[in-house]
Design a protein around this nucleic acid. Sequence first.
DNA 1: AAATAATTTAATCATTTGATTAAATACTAG
DNA 2: CTAGTATTTAATCAAATGATTAAATTATTT
Lengths: 202, 202
Amino acid sequence: MSKQSKIEVNLSTEEKFKAAARIVFTKKGYAATKTRDIAAEAGLNLALLNYYFRSKEKLFELIMIEKVEQLFTHIAPIINDSTSTLNEKIDQIAINYIDMLLENPDLPLFVLSEMNRNPERFGKIIRLDTHILNSRFIAQLAEVKKEINPIQLFITFLGMLIFPFISKPVFQSSGTLSEALFCKLMEERKELTAKWMKMILE
Amino acid sequence: MSKQSKIEVNLSTEEKFKAAARIVFTKKGYAATKTRDIAAEAGLNLALLNYYFRSKEKLFELIMIEKVEQLFTHIAPIINDSTSTLNEKIDQIAINYIDMLLENPDLPLFVLSEMNRNPERFGKIIRLDTHILNSRFIAQLAEVKKEINPIQLFITFLGMLIFPFISKPVFQSSGTLSEALFCKLMEERKELTAKWMKMILE
DNA sequence: AAATAATTTAATCATTTGATTAAATACTAG
DNA sequence: CTAGTATTTAATCAAATGATTAAATTATTT
């Protein structure tokens, strides 16, 4: 059993590198990632990585853009649906987002860490203003709770969904939270989060 | 105006290094921190740092232990108070914790990132089991909501308090959230979080 | 004040790490 | 098959970085 992970062997060389970079960058972050680690994870050579991507920095930006989009565009269609009610959106987002996070548990901490280290750079990438802050969802939140800044409510909702994945190592460190239990709790949490958000909005 | 920050000049050399290390480590994380940065921040020399602390690793562990304690022991006394009601605890924690985070905005992301990178190491440090998971607060949550795992409720509460500080750069990146507005929202949030938690528990 | 110990520094080392180069190999078109 | 192009590799470079050393300076003791 090699430590080499399951990167499809029939991918193009470029895609092998990107697949490896996704794994290593999201796991260790930019600074702790060695280009040699990525090459090894891809089963390829270091020079080749630079041949394809010019530099660690360039490759990182490709991955980072992907990951930011993965984190936000996932909910964008739901959030801007003009036909669904607020409660329907809440239900859909909760299910959809927790499913996505179960498959990409390292995603939020990665994006938030790198963004924290380098806030300037990502202003352009995100377009939070157009896609999220001006969304139908935010407008609906503002309608329902006129006296509360909808950002408060939106952060609360996102926090309910994302924070468990960020704080998982803390709870697992004491041994009381197995991987299986965590998954079970997250499944339960789809309904709970939706229910709680609706309570807050009543 | 030097870029050198305000580390008290009358501190002992060791304390100057630790003050500098707190700033640089929490801001940049372990991997991105250069020992030369810490020395410069302290206004001191690199060799001296190794003379006092032997290595970057050792110095980091000192700071990390401090920061983990700062993140959790702050609420420990409240959480284990046997005289206060659940609602009183919620009120106190919300105010107390947001105040602490306003003074240490980089703290949660730092601790959670480093813990994520190195989960094994911090099992001993935290003692989450004894101080938190077996706390009076958790017991009271379990009493009030018998059908829900109290960890769900506790994570939700913590997330409401901590997540805004972790996601701040995301919201600030679009320019819609000034520092002043953020602080105002966090002040409001003390009451809101408490109110929302009580709603969830009804 | 001299001697001794503690503190601080400049210079240097060894390793790591991002990147390059030139040669080797595989692939494709004629 | 051969010539030419694209792909891949091993070897190497240069800069960054954690750590050490030995000398210089300062403080303390006698």
